[in-house]
Design a protein around this nucleic acid. Structure first.
Lengths: 145, 145
DNA sequence: TCAATCTTGACTTATTTGCTCAGGATAGTC
DNA sequence: GACTATCCTGAGCAAATAAGTCAAGATTGA
């Protein structure tokens, strides 16, 4: 497992926040629904706020809401905001120049891995995830009945 | 960077070992060529031996050689041998059942990421890597000339 | 016999992760 | 204008992991 809980929880929080557009949801609510520690969530969502994904509404009945439409947020930017680079190896990291001058023989492989990752994560928007989450919950309710 | 140096060095060692089929190469040689600590390399290649990728030849003029043809070894098995699972999140790990019963909404995303990874790594054989490594070195020699 | 090489396992050191805790700032509501 | 819900910040900490290092031995060719 190499995606930290930080990024995983951040994505899940965004799904909850994006679910009811217009009205803010408190972190307490998000924490209960997703089973995440409140204090830890505060740290994570703080990062998402500073990066411009969500807005906070302070005071009683406050909470968080999306700062941009869900269809305009993709999983790649969310994950890298919370996690930093997710390149498989250092060679492939944005600003890095290879110490062994490309003679190791594996660099092209890691580039292909990196490209595949960006394609999958960059091609999934928060709007997609919200739909998937709702379908999953629906399917589960039917299963229980 | 989430592929450990262990797996990276292991792949690079296999490229060196697979380069001259038939004759064993010492780890000292591999360590010098690839710029890796000898003792660390011993640990790593030991793992590859136990997993059946390479054979050791003891004594003077000994070393390591491939135990299977290079075209029959793919990067996915090498990496997972040295690294354990490379699933992005625990949900997706082979024997794991999801604690939040699939209501988190992100599981499908991680499955897609995992599938993309397996495809790229599983589709690259050691024989491919050896060719790529030789092309790289050739290109570099021309560049220097 | 000697030296080159493989083999094993314990140990170390630094970093990261995943939290917890304490305390504050801000703003609606009664 | 007190009360309370909420956001916000930074320090601290235990456990795990990574990336080696070190020491000592086994095996075999020359």
């Amino acid at each position: 497992m190499w995606i930290s809980t930080r990024a995983q929880y951040g994505l899940r929080a965004l799904i909850e926040i994006g679910r009811q557009p217009g009205q803010p949801i408190s972190l307490k609510e998000v924490a209960t629904r997703q089973g995440i520690s409140l204090h830890y969530l505060e740290q994570i969502v703080g990062g998402l706020r500073r990066a411009g994904f969500v807005q906070s509404v302070r005071g009683a009945r406050g909470g968080y809401q999306l700062a941009r439409p869900a269809a305009g947020i993709n999983a790649y930017e969310v994950v890298t905001t919370l996690e930093g680079s997710i390149a498989p190896v250092q060679c492939v990291e944005d600003d890095h120049t290879c110490a062994s001058q490309n003679v190791c023989g594996t660099q092209e492989l890691w580039f292909r891995v990196n490209a595949a990752l960006r394609e999958v994560l960059g091609g999934t928007t928060l709007a997609d995830l919200i739909v998937e989450a709702q379908e999953q919950q629906h399917a589960r309710l039917i299963q229980l009945a």
